[in-house]
């Protein structure tokens, strides 16, 4: 019985699709990771236009106040199990926009991320290695961080 569950987890982890929702500058390096030099499709990642088919939501750096409800809605529309990858300094504490008061400075407190990739913007290699960590998390059967808690559960959006 255990073996079958392992098989499911393995299958899930090897084709991680990402919801195509870009809100910040880091999406440019994500585009580079999709490109021919880094080519993340080798590892089974694929951007999908609809959140309904997605397994992972990428917080591409900056989240402004206006885009936060849209981000949470996108997350809500994704089927379980779903994971969150946070890119860049902005998703941690606002990064270079820390003094700007139009930017949400704690997006990962609102929507907890499973893996946080540092950099401004993180390099494509770092993004792929972050996704590999998510892959490992799925294989190990660890529940996603956002399912354990997060401010978004108390929020309207």
């Amino acid at each position: 019985m255990l073996k079958i569950f392992d098989f499911f987890a393995h299958s899930k982890s090897e084709s991680v699709w990402m919801a195509h929702f870009c809100t910040g500058c880091c999406s440019l390096e994500m585009a580079a990771a999709m490109g021919p030099r880094y080519d993340w499709e080798r590892y089974g990642y694929l951007p999908t236009p609809s959140p309904r088919q997605a397994d992972v939501l990428v917080i591409t750096g900056l989240i402004t106040k206006k885009v936060l409800p849209a981000l949470l809605r996108t997350y809500q529309q994704m089927p379980e199990p779903k994971y969150v990858l946070a890119l860049g300094a902005c998703s941690f504490d606002g990064g270079p926009y820390n003094d700007s008061l139009a930017v949400v400075k704690n997006p990962t407190e609102i929507l907890p991320a499973d893996v946080f990739v540092a950099g401004c913007p993180p390099t494509p290699e770092a993004i792929i290695s972050g996704l590999e960590q998510i892959k490992q998390k799925i294989k190990d059967g660890i529940p996603s961080a956002a399912s354990e808690g997060g401010l978004y559960k108390e929020m309207k959006f």
Partner: peptide, 15 residues
């Protein structure tokens, strides 16, 4: 519009 409004014009005055 305004989904990536970072108020850059205000931000520079604080740096």
């Amino acid at each position: 519009i305004g989904f990536v409004w970072r108020a850059l014009e205000h931000l520079v005055t604080q740096k």
